[in-house]
Amino acid sequence: MGFLQITGKRYLVFGLANKKSIAASIAATLLEQGAEVILVVHSEARRQTAQRLFPGVPVFLCDVSEEAQISRVREEVAQQIAEAGGGRLDGIVHSIAFANYAAGIKPFHETPKNDFLQAVDISCFSLIAIANQFKELLDPDGSVVTVSISTTRMAATNYGYMAPIKAALDSSLCFLAKSFSAFSRVRFNAVAPSLLKTSSSAGIPGYIDSYLFAEKAMLRKRALTTQEAADTAVYLLSPRSSGITCQTIVVDGGMSVNYFDRDIVAKAIS
């Protein structure tokens, strides 16, 4: 079966946008390890992308800002599972985030209320809604993994208001695990990568400069890859991580301990 023990297990992956997505790397790695994957994407265009990337893998549509759509896709996934011979989901991946940067980055205290609440709804509450809707389809020993960020305590101006929202996402893990413990042993964890080259990051103003700085700040002087973040997520989905729950696992190549790197300091004060 292999070390991860996920051969033949079934996972539902929300949030694939294109081949650069963390969700795409997670799905590909699950398939490589012999697991079954079901994808849920936001739009018809993304469904076509997903079908090109993963021929033969079931792909469903869902706008997670509408709970009725989450309920609908649960029924569609349940039917897919029944037609495939029954069983349950062994895990769910929540790789979903959205922030409206159309008006550019504003000082945090000027954050528009509607933008903030929309981002909370899509980036954080959707995890809670998905967990609730899919609870009866999840195996009692299943695993739910979301995607956070390596730190929510650094006031990165160009990340706008998303760090506080990711902090809420991280906090939600323990409350979900506690409430699910009344009827299951489902685990809730997050993989928290540092800066990555993804399509969603491309929409953040000034992101490339931050990405290049992060690379210099890492102990190895080499940027984190999407695959490294995906590998951690797959481990958290597997039975091999059975003792881990309510945790946000930071994957940052040591960046958080190296801001006073000699070369970085020298360039900053020169």
Rank of each mutant, 00 (worst) to 15 (best):
F3E: 06
L4C: 03
G8L: 00
Y11I: 07
L12H: 03
L12Y: 05
L12C: 08
L16C: 02
A17V: 15
A17N: 06
K19C: 05
S21P: 05
S21R: 06
A23M: 03
A24I: 04
A24K: 00
S25Y: 12
I26K: 09
A28F: 03
T29E: 15
L30A: 04
L30K: 08
E32L: 04
Q33R: 14
G34E: 09
V40S: 02
S43R: 06
E44P: 00
E44K: 12
T49N: 06
T49P: 05
T49I: 12
Q51K: 11
F54T: 00
F54C: 00
G56K: 04
V59F: 00
F60N: 03
V64S: 01
E66F: 12
E67G: 10
A68I: 12
R72L: 09
V73I: 08
V73W: 01
R74F: 12
A78C: 08
Q80L: 01
E83S: 08
A84R: 13
G87A: 08
G87K: 07
L89T: 00
F98C: 07
A99S: 10
Y101W: 08
Y101N: 06
I105W: 02
F108D: 02
E110S: 09
E110N: 04
K113A: 11
F116M: 04
I122H: 10
I122S: 06
S123A: 04
S126F: 02
A129T: 14
A129C: 07
A131P: 01
N132P: 00
Q133N: 11
K135Y: 11
E136R: 05
E136S: 09
L137D: 04
S143P: 10
S143T: 04
S150M: 07
T152F: 07
M154W: 13
M154R: 11
A156F: 13
T157F: 15
T157L: 14
G160S: 03
Y161G: 02
P164K: 04
P164A: 00
I165R: 00
K166R: 02
D170H: 03
C174L: 09
C174D: 03
L176M: 09
K178S: 01
F180T: 06
S181L: 01
S181C: 05
A182H: 05
S184E: 08
S184R: 01
R185F: 02
F188Y: 11
A190N: 12
A190D: 11
L195C: 13
S201E: 15
S201C: 13
A202L: 11
G203S: 11
I204Q: 03
P205E: 06
Y211M: 01
L212Q: 14
L212F: 12
L212H: 13
K216F: 09
M218I: 13
R220M: 13
R220C: 10
R220Q: 13
K221V: 09
R222I: 10
A223G: 15
T225R: 04
T225K: 07
A230G: 06
D231K: 15
D231L: 15
A233W: 08
A233D: 06
Y235K: 14
Y235S: 12
L237D: 02
L237V: 10
S238F: 00
R240I: 02
I244D: 11
T245S: 15
T248C: 07
T248I: 08
T248F: 05
V251G: 14
V251Q: 15
D252F: 12
D252H: 14
S256Y: 12
V257Q: 14
V257I: 13
V257G: 00
D263R: 09
D263T: 13
V265P: 03
I269A: 04
I269H: 08
S270P: 13
